[in-house]
Amino acid sequence: MVLLVVGATGTLGRQVVRRALDEGYEVRCLVRSFQRASFLREWGAQLVRGDLCKPETLPPALEGATAVIDAATSRPAEAGGVYAVDWQGKVSLIQAAKKAGVERFVFFSILDAEKYPHVPLMDVKHCTEKFLAESGLDYTILRPCGFLQGLISQYAIPVLEKQAVWVMGDAAPVAYMNTQDIARFAVQALRQPKTANATYPLAGSRAWGAYEIVRLCERLSGQDAKVSQMPLGLLRGVRKLARFFQWGWDLSDRLAFSEVSASGEPLTAPMDEVYPAFGIDPKEITTLEAYLKEYFTRIMKKLKELDYERDKAKKKKVPF
């Protein structure tokens, strides 16, 4: 099976590539820069130059492809922003995949996307879900809540560096999941006929609030966190201001997405029927506690080693 992965250099996409290669798939990656994606070639993937915003580049990448896993999304500084990549680009990709005779299309959306039509990224994801479902392709839509990987820069590193940890007041708890586990669901979908033409939530073992994560980081690191609260009113004010300027439109769209977490409604979903459908044991899924514990254990060990080497170097100095 030839699998085309779109968004292969991203946090989630690279895990999809790694998982698919490990399971013996022939993996092809749609990339804009061979240099930036060189690590994927080193892993054993084939690189094909293409761009979602350039529809003419998609058919060559899809030639001979059996399946597509789409993990792409626009970046904050992306030219054209959310609509160019996450809507127009995805429509072009789905149409090209249909024309190329692709047998299965796996798309990553966001949990509860239909509940927030005022949030551009959520609205676009929901519209893409509907477009894919009506395309005639056999599809699987996966709707994660959030990535464990994002918690490192948001919580763990600031705690270790004694910097402020910014949280929004009354932020909604989120059932984060490891991108490695999310990638496993995506690749497994290709082997499970029962997952065709269906939509599934992907949620971690439970939803975690911001202050719960801060307390966990404090316990694992042995350090006190400096917590600073971002008022929701200030967030909305910045968003409205950004809408006045063309250069601020994408920033405004992303600030709107931040308001989802400030709504107070937990981002989580039951997984009782999801695990059996994909043939995955829930006990094998990484918990937030285990993920952060592993991170802090590695970092604290490294810091101790650096302190030891520093002390050793000082003792070697001979005063003159």
Rank of each mutant, 00 (worst) to 15 (best):
A242K: 10
F34G: 01
F244R: 14
P319S: 14
Q46L: 13
L235R: 11
T195R: 04
Y291Q: 05
V82M: 04
E134F: 13
Q154T: 11
D250C: 01
G146W: 11
A97T: 02
D51I: 00
S228D: 01
C217H: 11
A164S: 14
G279C: 08
K312G: 14
E26C: 02
L220I: 08
D250W: 03
T9N: 01
T128E: 00
G13A: 04
P76D: 09
G101M: 08
D86N: 11
Y155R: 11
V124M: 00
F296L: 15
V318K: 15
A256T: 01
I141Y: 03
A84T: 05
R219K: 15
R215L: 06
F108Q: 01
K115R: 15
S252Y: 03
A242E: 12
A113H: 08
I152D: 03
A225K: 11
G279T: 03
L255T: 01
G24W: 11
N178T: 00
S205P: 11
V48W: 02
R143H: 13
C217L: 07
K301R: 13
Y176T: 06
D307Q: 14
C127W: 00
A183Q: 01
I94N: 01
T128L: 05
W166Y: 14
A113G: 06
Q229N: 02
A133S: 10
V238Q: 12
Q154G: 05
F320H: 08
G80H: 11
R206L: 05
A164C: 05
S38F: 01
R19G: 02
A20K: 07
R219I: 10
S135R: 07
M168Q: 14
R310Y: 13
R254L: 15
Y83Q: 07
V82I: 15
K115E: 09
P282V: 09
V68F: 13
V187Q: 11
V85R: 05
H126M: 03
E129F: 07
Q35A: 12
I94E: 04
M1N: 13
S38L: 01
P158H: 14
V6F: 00
C53E: 13
R243E: 07
L132Q: 04
Y200W: 07
F244G: 04
E114P: 02
Q46A: 01
L137N: 07
E26I: 09
P76G: 10
G81H: 10
S205T: 04
T73N: 07
V82H: 08
V165T: 05
D123H: 07
P120N: 06
V106N: 06
E42F: 00
F244I: 08
A72L: 14
I141M: 07
S205Q: 09
Q223H: 08
A172R: 06
P120D: 03
M271I: 04
G10Q: 00
K316E: 15
K312M: 05
C29A: 03
S92Y: 05
W43E: 14
